[in-house]
Design a protein around this nucleic acid. Sequence first.
DNA 1: TGTCTATTTTGCCAAATAGCCAAATAGATT
DNA 2: AATCTATTTGGCTATTTGGCAAAATAGACA
Lengths: 113, 113
Amino acid sequence: MKTETKNKLIQQAAVIKALSHPTRLLIVDMLSKKNICVCEITKAIGNDMSTVSKHLSVLKNSGLVDITRKGNQIFYNLKCPCILEFMDCIAKVAKVTAKEKIKQISCCARKRA
Amino acid sequence: MKTETKNKLIQQAAVIKALSHPTRLLIVDMLSKKNICVCEITKAIGNDMSTVSKHLSVLKNSGLVDITRKGNQIFYNLKCPCILEFMDCIAKVAKVTAKEKIKQISCCARKRA
DNA sequence: TGTCTATTTTGCCAAATAGCCAAATAGATT
DNA sequence: AATCTATTTGGCTATTTGGCAAAATAGACA
């Protein structure tokens, strides 16, 4: 494989990885509605603010979000709302998978009985 | 947050996580063109077959791919091609981010000089 | 300048991940 | 049944991640 192709894959995987955590998905969802500051996000999520800040910096490093300072608060905003379109597909996959997992469990239960 | 909402996020994050590795992105790309068997995928990727097999099982568990046996080979196929549409957006984000990272580096270099 | 507030960074720990090699398994074939 | 081939699983190590608490920082404002 060409190094260039490989690097592209690595970079793309990094962006996807930034999205691959429930807390960060929630943050993205919140930002899709309104630009908000760290303290508001922290309130909504319930974790320690330092934890939330780390999640935010993961999103920022991936290039998915951006910041603006207003007074002494920092507001985060979605840089590429196109990722929202994708979430429908992911939600569909997740739903089907969840159903199948339940089926598998009940199937095993039957076998054991 | 409702437990139901939380669980949905966890499930969706799991699907995204399955996509968050360069090797698995490459596999998905290959499968978007043609259903192929493990040995072919292994050839294309260059890692140990056991490593590739593990990546495939991550994709399978997430519900993104499915398998069919033909003789004593196992063919993998994409279950939800809708994820391909998403890749354009990701590629865009990755490209912009890569450019910005380069800028940052050269900027630091200037500062140091 | 010093202080206040919002946010980020650091240090630490437990858990998860990716890779290889060796061993196990599942069907196909004799 | 014995063997062959394709694939998966288990064991190991090194690395990364997510969480909290404490310390550091950045800018606002007296």
